[in-house]
């Protein structure tokens, strides 16, 4: 009984520390968005205001950046899905020469620090006429999503029981019908998780976007650095909250599937 109590106390302590560790920094920054000023070492700001929100919303450049981010992220997800999902199906369902090498290769190119590639990338994008175009930025973003969009759905397609498909086929369904009525719905949670991860990856991309998009297309992450150092801390806080809203909505949407192991399944090499 005493041991059980100790475990409970330790567990509660661990939980409390974890809450502070994870949520503390977010709250500490978030509160600033409503603060007039803050004097060390007070635990609460000197006063409350919505002034900073008005300022951010009134700033034209910032709202353009917000709009661009909200455009490029879904665009990236769609393009990435069109390019990668057939491949994911192939990886999940077919066995062909070099399959595993291809899977690992997709990941390996991601591990090379992108900063070393700017000059070559710039030359190539100019040569192909992709500089300062929407397509150019989408290519940069899609590159960062390929791992998610192939690996996770591949595992999801691979896990669809063949017996269900065969049963449907035996009942006279066409291959397309089997795919849309049986295979796709069963693989959908995995695809959904891949889409969420791709959205977040696109939403976070700053370095490459700046290279290709400047000066025409600026997104929220490319503006974040100037914001953090350039504006009052409170405005950076407002911007942080705005930048987190889409992510939090996605969290609510896909939480069950992500926690359900779809993401984890996708990263096992089979």
């Amino acid at each position: 009984m005493a041991r059980r109590l100790t475990t409970n106390v330790l567990l509660t302590l661990f939980l409390a520390l974890l809450v502070v560790f994870i949520l503390g920094p977010l709250l500490w920054l978030g509160i600033r968005a409503f603060a007039t000023s803050w004097t060390y070492p007070n635990l609460l700001p000197d006063g409350w205001t919505l002034e900073w929100w008005r300022k951010v919303i009134a700033d034209n450049q910032l709202s353009t950046a917000v709009q661009n981010s909200l455009t490029f992220a879904p665009l990236t997800v769609i393009v990435s899905a069109v390019i990668c999902l057939p491949a994911a199906y192939a990886f999940g369902r077919h066995d062909f020469a070099g399959r595993k090498i291809m899977l690992v290769g997709i990941f390996a190119t991601n591990a090379f620090p992108k900063m070393g590639l700017f000059v070559t990338m710039a030359s190539m994008f100019y040569a192909l006429g992709l500089m300062q175009t929407v397509l150019g930025i989408v290519i940069v973003h899609v590159m960062g999503t390929v791992v998610f969009m192939t690996w996770i759905p591949a595992a999801a397609f691979g896990a669809v029981p063949r017996s269900l498909e065969e049963a449907a086929r035996d009942a006279g369904a066409s291959p397309a019908r089997v795919f849309f009525r049986v295979t796709l719905p069963l693989a959908l949670p995995g695809i959904l998780v891949a889409m969420v991860m791709s959205f977040l990856a696109s939403f976070d991309e700053a370095q490459g976007t700046y290279l290709v998009g400047y000066p025409d297309y600026l997104t929220m992450p490319t503006q974040m650095y100037s914001l953090v150092l350039n504006y009052p801390l409170q405005m950076a806080a407002v911007f942080s909250i705005l930048l987190s809203i889409p992510s939090v909505l996605l969290l609510a949407l896909a939480h069950r599937h992500i926690m359900g192991g779809q993401l984890a399944e996708g990263f096992q090499l089979r």
């Binding site: 390019i83 990668c84 057939p86 491949a87 199906y89 192939a90 990886f91 369902r93 077919h94 066995d95 062909f96 020469a97 070099g98 399959r99 291809m102 290769g105 997709i106 190119t109 290519i139 899609v142 590159m143 390929v146 969009m149 192939t150």
Partner: peptide, 12 residues
């Protein structure tokens, strides 16, 4: 399968 897997690989 190989052909279907090609597009993302070519991109990368």
């Amino acid at each position: 399968g190989f052909v279907m897997a090609l597009p993302p690989l070519l991109l990368i």
